[in-house]
Design a binder for these strands. Structure first.
Lengths: 340, 340
DNA sequence: TTGTAAGCGTTATCAC
DNA sequence: GTGATAACGCTTACAA
């Protein structure tokens, strides 16, 4: 066990009282001579003094910890947002406790409980697929722990929300496909209970209507999340309805799954069918042909969720905030014949 | 700010002293009647009492915090190891503080300082590329904070080490290529100062020697880490030395970069050249042809590093441990003509 | 300008 | 069996 220098050690060394030494570290105390302050700071540096954060946390009744819960962090979207949030929080002297629910509502609940038990002053959360914890989370907020939701949010939870403008960018993505000549489009959608998936569906339909392209219900397929989900949905669709000429996937993994099946069947991308991803990941540049996708400003998202949470903690109410970020359409080979 | 129930609240409520209440929660105190203990536990449950961990940490001089520093966590290898380590540590009542050095020696140093100042009881670390912190880390250990190294370790740091058996599996990987008929092999290596990269180089050479395949120095190329590094190295090699018939890349990204260039030049994989990755990532299944690679048991790695650290904290010396994990050779299309 | 002392929520050592 | 009290390291109002 490491032995740390305490304020008392410093005080003894310098023949001062602990009170005086403590004040030296806090600029708000002007009632201390510059000379003693310098002497104390100097000695502290030399002896390697660091204040005991637990004593501070105990006294101040603030944990200076923030919990972040995400459904998974193998996907780079979440690791990027986490890194950026952590950076911002650290600047404000907050430590970050990161947990993953692994898309399990139960584990999500356990994680929240762990963090709420005195560990954190606030919580940043992206709900897992099929989360049943709305009420519990509202209780947590009620009890005095502010929460910020991002990415996968629930309207039932009364907190600031940070999302991507899924509707708008689903329109843009679809319109890009249309502009490339697609007329028989499908949308590989996320599980229906994810609101962000719903917005993408609405955006897809809106674009079709705007361009007066008739469409039927079966053109929106509730596929899932993973590469495998994409494969299965694509296979099923091909069997039942033949080949579309444009696909808007609600996520890169879905798009990649679909591409696997198409390539296996010898259907040329982008000549016969154009494919568009969503929430760009590193994989977009690895598949062949390279996948057009919509990138999200993970850096800005991380900073904003931190800011909202810090505001809430400071008593500035942001619970009605609902910020929608814009992204970028990255056109690559999978949607542009000319790009070939 | 959330208001928590304290031991004092419980004591007042039950007309008992704080001392008695405290003892009720710790089974080692037998000098308390079963009836009062039950009464206390009951009341605690009802009122939602949870002990304040900061008061405990302060008193016990144990923080029950562990720091984990990795060079990046967008790569799934690290997120998997972290998740598994966190799971094991949580079982033992330890919280995890996760930080990323983003392959920067400076940020790595700052992260270590942050964690040390937050008085973590121990540190798990995978060094960044080009880390200059050996001495500082040894000082940290010297000061009484145990450290466990994994994946990217340095011999100069005196701590338990957990690695993959890079040498052995580089031999296996290379032999697989040879068994598929390759005779003109190259190795796309990691930066030279990474010991794990060095082991893979030695393994590659060993396999060639064992099978009496002549080779020259230029067949081992210090490429880097990223997809782009792989592209550049491959381009350069093709220009200067023509096309090899087998490539062992020291990482999936390098392999994928090389494949991009080969495909662009119209060189058929696996017919003309076979490509093998290392430390399998999700990308292996996304590229085309699917990439043969060597997978690592991230779960077991996470558990073992946690165990080593907990042992060190408990005073059981493991500083001379150097565990080498074995992996699995996953053969896919990129190395098997028949698989086509 | 500096020192004193109470208190944050626990645990553990003694009395009673 | 239970209660009082000191201690962990720090901050802060108040006294000197």
């Amino acid at each position: 066990m490491k032995e740390y220098i305490t304020i008392k050690d410093l005080a003894d060394q310098l023949h001062l009282s602990v009170g005086t030494v403590s004040k030296a570290f806090n600029p708000k105390y002007k009632d201390i001579s510059d000379r003693t302050r310098q002497k104390i700071l100097e000695a502290a540096r030399k002896m390697g003094y660091v204040p005991n954060p637990f004593a501070q946390k105990l006294l101040k009744k603030k944990t200076l910890n923030i919990g972040i819960i995400v459904p998974e962090f193998s996907h780079s979207y979440f690791s990027e947002v986490i890194f950026s949030a952590q950076e911002k929080l650290l600047e404000n002297d907050y430590q970050t406790l990161i947990m993953s629910s692994h898309e399990s509502s139960e584990l999500e609940r356990k994680n929240i409980e762990t963090l709420v038990n005195h560990m954190v002053d606030g919580l940043i959360i992206s709900l897992c697929n099929g989360s049943l914890n709305h009420e519990y989370i509202n209780d947590v907020i009620e009890s005095g722990i502010p929460i910020v939701q991002f990415n996968r949010v629930s309207k039932k939870v009364n907190s600031p929300k940070v999302e991507f403008n899924d509707y708008k960018w689903a329109v843009f993505g679809t319109e890009h496909l249309i502009s490339q000549g697609c007329q028989n489009l499908i949308h590989l959608a996320l599980p229906r209970h994810l609101p962000l998936g719903h917005q993408r569906i609405l955006g897809f339909k809106k674009a079709l209507e705007k361009h007066r392209i008739a469409h039927k219900d079966h053109q929106v397929i509730e596929a899932g999340i993973t590469v495998q989900d994409g494969e299965e949905a694509m296979s099923r669709y091909l069997e039942n309805h033949g080949c579309p000429d444009g696909i808007l996937a609600a996520g890169d993994p879905l798009a990649i799954g679909a591409m696997k099946i198409l390539k296996r069947k010898g259907i040329a991308i982008p000549e016969k069918v154009k494919v568009m991803g969503f929430t760009e990941s590193a994989m977009a540049l690895v598949v062949e042909p390279e996948l057009s996708s919509i990138s999200q400003p993970t850096d800005q998202i991380g900073h904003l969720i931190s800011k909202f949470l810090l505001d809430q903690i400071a008593g500035i109410d942001k619970s009605n905030e609902h910020y929608l970020f814009d992204g970028k359409l990255n056109i690559r080979e999978s949607t542009s014949c000319t790009g070939q």
